[in-house]
């Protein structure tokens, strides 16, 4: 399987798991970190070259997509958009910082998995 295919599958799986976490009423922050770690582990095993880069991009992409979907299609998002540009920008800034941290956590998980895994190419 090509790296791009795995990358896309992981993005869709991430979105699905985010939705499951919100349905189960779990902490989104906690779910985001755990999901990033799982994504890193999966990509660390499946991708031979630069799994850290792919994990970072995958986690960041699905988090941004989830954030945009939340803004557009949920009551909370509508409430936030109605609060004005200042509140939306502030919360989006905090959210992006959180996504960056999650992406870094995922990258580290990919680094560890890639080096422990037997499928290393070096």
């Amino acid at each position: 399987m090509k790296n791009n295919h795995i990358f896309l599958i992981v993005i869709f799986a991430g979105l699905a798991f985010f939705e499951i976490a919100s349905i189960l009423n779990k902490s989104v922050m906690m779910a985001g970190i755990l999901l990033a770690i799982i994504t890193g582990m999966v990509l660390g095993i499946k991708i031979d070259k630069d799994p850290q880069k792919y994990t970072f991009l995958a986690v960041f992409t699905y988090s941004i997509i989830a954030w945009v979907l939340m803004l557009l299609f949920t009551k909370d998002g509508k409430f936030l958009l109605e609060a004005g540009i200042a509140a939306t920008s502030l919360l989006t800034g905090f959210a992006i910082m959180n996504f960056l941290f999650n992406a870094i956590v995922g990258s580290f998980a990919a680094f560890v998995t890639c080096n422990i895994s037997d499928n290393r190419t070096d």
């Binding site: 902490s27 906690m30 970190i33 956590v105 580290f108």
Partner: peptide, 18 residues
């Protein structure tokens, strides 16, 4: 990066078990 992650996990506070 690991040190940063450790601080990030520690700063979560509340009931987060990380």
């Amino acid at each position: 990066i690991l040190l940063g992650i450790t601080i990030y996990f520690f700063m979560q506070g509340g009931n987060e078990y990380l």
